[in-house]
Simulated assay, not measured.
Amino acid sequence: MDDHPVRTALLELLADGPVTANEAARRLGESSGSCSFHLRQLARAGLVEEAPVPPGSGRRKPWQLRVLDPLMRDLEDEGYRRWRAGRDQVDPRWHTDDAASHVLWLTPDEMAAVAAALRRVAEPYASREQADARPPDARPVALVSRIFPLLPPEDDQWTA
């Protein structure tokens, strides 16, 4: 898939959750026809798919990411590179702690509890996909979290 700027912007937008071509057009400053065309091209490439539509939601046709792991990692990395390169042009109030990384020694139950706590922190803000649900000064912010066991070197095996 080529690096078309509209397609790249659509993939970044879809990283935050499903959107329709009309919603994408409004948020990206593009025409809905252009967004619809590029969403279909991304679908042909296997990167996006139509999202399930709840009954009674009318003609709404949302799209969602199809390939998550490698695509999400690339989008996260690209978004972070763009932030680091352009952060000096952004209001300093946005220059908060923008990266954190920890190696923790946890049991499986503790790891599950940490993951659940992270989801609880983000959950109150997840319902702000629609513009009328968010404060006027809200901007899209990437929250990237992964929690997984660090596997030992091949010569040092874990036991179950």
Rank of each mutant, 00 (worst) to 15 (best):
A117H: 04
A85W: 00
Q64K: 11
L71K: 12
L10M: 05
L28T: 08
V53D: 02
V48Q: 05
S127Y: 02
V144F: 05
L151W: 09
A45D: 10
A112S: 08
A113T: 12
A138T: 03
P149W: 08
D74H: 14
A45E: 15
P52L: 02
T107Y: 11
D132M: 07
S31F: 00
R82M: 02
W63H: 07
P18H: 02
V90M: 14
T107I: 08
T8L: 11
R120L: 13
L75R: 08
K61E: 03
L65C: 03
R146D: 05
R139K: 14
A51Q: 02
N22T: 11
A43H: 03
E30M: 14
V67G: 00
D155E: 15
Q130C: 10
V114E: 08
L42F: 03
A85S: 04
P152T: 11
P18L: 02
C35A: 15
L42K: 00
E154L: 12
V19Q: 05
R128E: 15
A15E: 14
L11I: 08
A43T: 10
L143V: 15
E110P: 02
R73A: 09
E154Q: 11
D16T: 10
D98Q: 11
F37V: 06
T96A: 13
A138W: 02
P140I: 05
V141N: 00
G58R: 03
T159N: 15
R84W: 01
T20M: 04
R27W: 02
R119A: 07
Y80D: 14
S32L: 01
D69W: 13
R81Q: 13
Y80A: 13
Y125C: 06
N22R: 15
W158V: 11
P92K: 10
D69L: 15
S127Q: 10
E23T: 06
D91H: 12
S36G: 09
P55F: 05
N22A: 14
F148W: 11
W63Q: 02
T159F: 03
A142M: 06
D155L: 10
A117V: 02
S145L: 06
D132K: 14
P153F: 02
L13Q: 04
E76C: 12
F37E: 13
V103C: 04
M111R: 11
H4Q: 12
S34M: 12
L14M: 07
G46I: 01
D91C: 08
D3R: 10
E129L: 14
L68N: 08
Y125K: 13
Q157V: 10
P62S: 04
D137S: 13
S32N: 07
D3G: 13
E154S: 14
A117Q: 13
W83K: 04
V90P: 09
Q157Y: 02
E123H: 12
V90I: 15
S31I: 05
E129W: 01
T159A: 15
L118G: 07
